[in-house]
Design a binder for these strands. Structure first.
Length: 404
DNA sequence: AATCTGGCCAACCGCAAGTGG
DNA sequence: ACCACTTGCGGTTGGCCAGAT
């Protein structure tokens, strides 16, 4: 195998501060090429040269100007520091927001981003971003403000292409809140005393601590994520159970995930879901979905997909139903919460077959734009057990493609 | 006062694409 | 088509500085 070709400049670059061969001609006089910070004198020489000869042909700069710098170094110095109309100083707020948007659009395409920021260089933008990333990752904050995440989600879903993946790894549990628990089935009490996603709506790009609150069964006082920390449905027991408020640091909401592994019961107030406290529609797909699911329960009841009895206990549900309206918002990039994995404690329930057709075991079932959101990754196994308990010889969905 | 740490930034490095002989 | 060279890009490194310890 032939060794890779190495450009002259790279040879030069590999030998800092020492003599290096010039221009490939054998026996040429060795020239000393300097590295490191540029001096004002060198800048002046480069400026003068480019002023007379224009940009480009950077190796000629070295040859003709007397500068002891390689062509690459000259080009970089000119592009980043000497060329006219360069902006210096910190990025303005507008520039920062534009960078966020551009990064969401392009990813780490610094040069492309720089085209949209007159006077700024790719190196500047890259440095800004890298610094920002480190800072926010350290702080456990999402890289993008919610609004941009939503836009990414919309775009990603429409285009079906990959976008820079946001780490949705489980946030570490920081603390249990002191909020008095709510009774889930106290009809006079809204399920959610406040919009738990309110903080999500804040601009998080400027260092605000981002967190949100999900009501969660105290039985499972471990963590909303990861899902396997949740107890199985049996552990919820029956009848009323209280919700605690679990405060989670949010690294980033899923950008376009169709899988939100949350305890389904947290979203259910009472049969029909009418007591779900109103949440602002349109601020996020998740909010939309929450609204939709609250309606969806009622629709499920009315369509008799599930027996009424199923709704008498919170532990009937292992998933969240969101009706067709949610599909529309999903098509616009909203998070998907569609479908339900019913696990009634008393009777088997027919799951409409078109609700699932692929996806992985338990965690997610989907049907085109729809998706079933489940509470834990073991649901497939649980469902098999339920099928057994319900008297099926085998799990009725065993033969469904993609369902294990 | 000395040391440590993190932020910031300029510059370097390696690779790939483009170009011309 | 091949090769040498140039150019551009994105990742990484290292030095400087300020604030914290």
């Amino acid at each position: 195998m032939m060794p890779p070709t190495v450009g002259k400049d790279e040879l030069v670059d590999a030998l800092p501060f020492i003599d290096s061969p010039d221009s490939g001609e054998a026996g040429m006089v060795q020239q000393l090429l300097k590295k490191g910070p540029w001096t004002a004198a060198e800048d002046a020489i480069l400026k003068d040269y480019v002023g007379k000869h224009g940009e480009g042909n950077w190796n000629a700069v070295r040859k003709n100007s007397g500068l002891q710098r390689c062509g690459k170094s000259c080009r970089l110095r000119w592009a980043n520091h000497l060329r006219p109309n360069l902006k210096k100083g910190s990025f303005s707020l507008e520039e920062e927001m534009l960078i966020l948007q551009l990064h969401a659009d392009f990813g780490n395409k610094w040069a492309r981003m720089a085209l949209h920021l007159p006077g700024r260089t790719d190196n500047e933008i890259k440095n800004y971003w890298n610094t920002r990333i480190k800072r926010r990752l350290r702080a456990g904050l999402p890289l993008y403000p919610l609004e941009i995440q939503k836009q990414m989600s919309v775009r990603n879903h429409r285009q079906g292409d990959a976008v820079p993946w946001i780490d949705t790894s489980p946030p570490a549990l920081k603390s249990f809140p002191q909020t008095p628990p709510l009774s889930l089935f106290n009809s006079s009490t809204p399920l959610l005393p406040q919009n738990p996603f309110e903080s999500l709506l804040q601009d998080t790009s400027r260092g605000k601590n981002l967190s949100f609150q999900f009501p969660v069964s105290p039985v499972s006082q471990k963590s909303v994520f990861p899902s396997h920390n949740f107890p199985s449905s049996a552990q919820y027991g029956s009848g009323n159970f209280d919700l605690g408020l679990l405060q989670l640091p949010l690294q980033s909401p899923p950008s376009y995930s169709v899988k939100m592994e949350l305890p389904s019961s947290q979203f259910f107030s009472s049969p029909g879901g009418e007591q779900m406290s109103p949440l602002p529609l349109g601020n996020s797909g998740l909010l939309d979905a929450l609204l939709q699911q609250s309606h969806g329960v009622g629709d499920l009841l009315s369509s008799k997909c599930l027996p009424m009895d199923s709704f008498h206990e919170p532990d009937c549900f292992r998933g969240i139903q969101v009706k067709q309206e949610a599909v529309d918002s999903w098509k616009q990039g909203a998070y998907t919460l569609l479908g339900i994995i019913p696990t009634p404690t008393t009777a088997p329930t027919t799951i409409p077959p078109d609700w699932y057709d692929n996806s992985s075991c338990g965690g997610e079932f989907s049907n085109g734009p729809s998706s079933v959101v489940t509470t834990d990754d073991d649901i497939g196994l649980e469902m098999q057990q339920l099928a057994h308990d319900w008297g099926f010889g085998s799990c009725p969905w065993d033969n469904m493609p993609g369902i294990c």
